[in-house]
C-alpha cells in the first residue's frame, strides 16, 4: 500500500518512458551495425590478406580489453579534438533533414552519436568473436565436400559455410544483443538520456529512489526477457543443422 500511495507521478513516468524509448533506439541502431561490422571483422580474421587479419585481431583485442566507459569518454571528449574544427561545429549544431511529404527528421545529439559509435565498436569486437566461433564450428569436411562438387570459394561460403555458421552462432549472438541493451546504460555517463539517466533524474527531483530504480529495472528485465523469448523461438525454428562436427 505504501508503495502504491507513493508511486511516481505521471510526469515522472513519462520521463522514464522516454528514456526507455531512447534505450530501445540506441540498441536498435547498434545491434545491426555491430552485427554487420562484426561479420566483416570475423571474415577478415579467418584468413584473407595478412595485414588485414592482423589489424582485425588487434581491433578485437583493444576494444575487448578496455572498459566501455573509458571508450565512451574517448569518443565523447577525445575524438572531437582530433577532428577538424569545421566538422566539430557541424556535429555540435542541430540539423534537420527535410524529407518528402513535409516530414522532418532531426539529426541526433552529439551525445547520442558518440554513444552509438562507442557502443557499436565495443560490441563489434564481441559479436565478431561469436561469428568467428560459428564459422569455426562448421566441420572442415563440409567445405571439402562443397569444393569437391566444384563450387567456387564464394559459393562455398555463401551456400555451405554461412547457413550453418549462423545457426551455430545464433544463441551466443542473442546473448551479445542482450549485452548491448544492458551496456547502453553506460551512455548515461556522457549524457545520453536513456532509461538509467532518466531514473537518476527522477530520483534527484522526486527523491523516490526506490520507485525510480524499480521502474527502470523492470524495463530492463522485460526487454531482456523478450530477447530471451526470441532466442528460444529462433532456436526451435533454426536448430543447428545435422551432421557430425
Amino acid at each position: 500500500m505504501v508503495l502504491l500511495n507513493n508511486f511516481l507521478k505521471p510526469e515522472y513516468l513519462g520521463w522514464l518512458w522516454n528514456g526507455f524509448l531512447v534505450t530501445l533506439e540506441i540498441s536498435a541502431l547498434v545491434i545491426p551495425l555491430a552485427t554487420l561490422l562484426g561479420f566483416v571483422v570475423a571474415v577478415l580474421r579467418n584468413g584473407s590478406p595478412r595485414g588485414a587479419g592482423v589489424a582485425a585481431t588487434a581491433f578485437v583485442a583493444v576494444f575487448r580489453n578496455s572498459p566501455l566507459l573509458v571508450q565512451l569518454f574517448f569518443w565523447y571528449f577525445g575524438a572531437p579534438m582530433l577532428l577538424p574544427e569545421a566538422w566539430r561545429e557541424w556535429l555540435n549544431a542541430t540539423h534537420t533533414a527535410e524529407l518528402p511529404w513535409g516530414l522532418a527528421v532531426e539529426w541526433p545529439s552529439y551525445e547520442f552519436i558518440s554513444g552509438a559509435v562507442g557502443l557499436t565498436l565495443y560490441s563489434t569486437a564481441y559479436v565478431s568473436e561469436e561469428i568467428r566461433a560459428g564459422l569455426k564450428g562448421v566441420a572442415a569436411s563440409q567445405r571439402q565436400a562443397a569444393e569437391a562438387l566444384g563450387m567456387r570459394a564464394s559459393q562455398v561460403f555463401r551456400h555451405v559455410l554461412l547457413p550453418q555458421a549462423v545457426r551455430i552462432a545464433l544463441p551466443p549472438l542473442m546473448g551479445q544483443y542482450m549485452n548491448i541493451v544492458k551496456n547502453s546504460s553506460l551512455t548515461m555517463a556522457i549524457g545520453v538520456m536513456e532509461i538509467s539517466y532518466a531514473a537518476r533524474q527522477v530520483e534527484t527531483v522526486s527523491f523516490k529512489t526506490f520507485q525510480a530504480y524499480a521502474v527502470a529495472t523492470l524495463f530492463y528485465v522485460l526487454t531482456i526477457a523478450f530477447i530471451e523469448a526470441l532466442t528460444q523461438i529462433a532456436r526451435l525454428r533454426f536448430p543447428p543443422l545435422g551432421g557430425r562436427r
Partner: peptide, 13 residues
C-alpha cells in the same frame, strides 16, 4: 538480466 550500473544504484541506495 540487469545492467551492472543498475545494480550499483541498488546496492548504493
Amino acid at each position: 538480466a540487469i545492467p551492472v550500473l543498475m545494480l550499483i544504484f541498488w546496492t548504493y541506495f
